[in-house]
Design a protein around this nucleic acid. Structure first.
Lengths: 253, 253
DNA sequence: CGGGGTTAAATATAGTATCTTTATTATCGT
DNA sequence: ACGATAATAAAGATACTATATTTAACCCCG
């Protein structure tokens, strides 16, 4: 099978000094080729054996490089005939998890996350009012109705609410905002929603309905302001929940 | 060397079905332990051999898992006596590159990136006006002065400008905003700045000076508005540059 | 002679085992 | 306290077996 031309002559530049390990060199070359547009999603990178020969290393090294590239979402690996490594297309979920891990390791507070989320979602609402298509409008209405039906099932209602926020971001037609919101939700959104009372649920539903309406009537400034306010309310609840959880942990442990 | 207790009994739950590969199972268990706060930065995970024994697999599998965890920034690996895998602390650079790759693979436009950057930086300026310490104020002033000295050296001036924007984000004392800005700059900031004229450079410097002043006088609303306007101006320039580059590519190829 | 489904061969990763080399740290002796 | 030495652990190489997947050959049937 023919290899992608971007890697044809990659061994010509003999390594000046080994930048730590052999596999990192391979990883770097592939990444650079990607940024230089010499590689595009779907391109065939080669098999373990191919890469090993091309870079004049053992298969272990090639394998290490592929593991790293795979973990970074740069390549997809398939086994069997016709298999091997191919350049992946974007994968928001993978990236969202990477951010979640980093935020966890950095030890950021809920407050910091919610502040960022406010910025992202306010802009998303503003742009949604400008860019949303009739299809987006329908989806937002549909999600509001679904949440209304599920208002007594806390878990389902919470999931539905999260979907609504994501749908607003998607209606903005800005994929950066979508990716960023997914990753922040991954960290900030509660799996169970212990402090959700019926009254709060109704208030949230009402805001969502208004948001859908403002977006449909293309009131960008109104949508922005309402979303801003709404996320601040959510932030307050999350921070309070978090303080409660910490207190509970102190009590029981 | 003692292993971290979070991994002591991880083999008790026999695998119900192999979720694709053995190494992914190890990766998942470590990640879950991380999110469950059973593992914290600095904790010792074990050596390749340790992990292999613990999960009852060969060293290659353990190694695959460690390569993946390393690529995701979850662990750091050291060779030699006393070496092995340890849980890493946050690494913004690593994450920024991950976002850059994903945005590249997804094929997002410069416009989308700059919109998101506007949201992030406006909020950063607002929060900087509220949270900045005297040390932050000094750093901002210093960067403005440095840029003033380097105004004739395009590359140095561009670098300095970027530093200023990052310093504002750091002055917000919100680490999420810092991480997000680093990653967006990684994609949007030009290495060379071909359309930067002396007049534009002076105008930018002036805005930076005003921003530093508004942050120092704790005018949150003013800082926010000025930054918003400023990033919109930058966005316009980047988009124009990009169109120019595309046109040039069409002409020469 | 043509089509469709089954089987077999080819291919490539997943995983195992054992080895050498190299980098780093810990230890021990002076 | 310092320097040589031993111990440790990853980096890398080699040669396997097992398993999954696709391609292609084949056979049967219409």
């Amino acid at each position: 099978m023919r290899l992608h031309p971007a890697l044809e002559y990659s061994t010509r530049d003999v390594l000046p000094f080994r930048s730590a390990t052999l596999s990192t060199r391979i990883v770097h070359e592939v990444r650079e080729a990607l940024f230089a547009k010499e590689l595009r999603p779907g391109d065939f990178l080669g098999t373990e054996k191919d890469l090993a020969q091309r870079f004049n290393v053992s298969r272990i090294v090639a394998r290490d490089a592929l593991r790293t590239l795979e973990a970074q979402g740069i390549v997809e690996i398939k086994v069997g005939s016709g298999g091997g490594a191919r350049v992946a297309s974007g994968n928001a979920r993978l990236f969202a998890e990477a951010l979640a891990v980093q935020l966890d390791l950095t030890g950021v507070s809920v407050g910091e996350i919610m502040e960022a989320q406010r910025a992202i979602e306010s802009l998303a609402a503003e742009l949604a009012a400008i860019n949303a298509t009739p299809g987006d409008h329908a989806r937002l209405r549909q999600l509001v109705e679904e949440a209304e039906r599920k208002i007594d099932d806390v878990a389902a209602y919470t999931r539905c609410s999260r979907e609504f926020h994501l749908a607003v971001a998607e209606a903005s037609h800005n994929r950066v905002l979508v990716v960023q919101l997914i990753s922040l939700q991954h960290v900030s959104w509660p799996a169970h929603n212990p402090t959700l009372t019926a009254e709060v649920a109704h208030r949230i539903l009402d805001v969502h309905r208004q948001l859908a309406h403002l977006i449909e009537t293309r009131d960008a400034e109104g949508a922005r302001r309402l979303m801003d306010e709404h996320v601040q309310m959510i932030a307050g609840r999350r921070i309070a929940e978090h303080r409660g959880r910490d207190a509970a942990a102190r009590d029981c442990c």
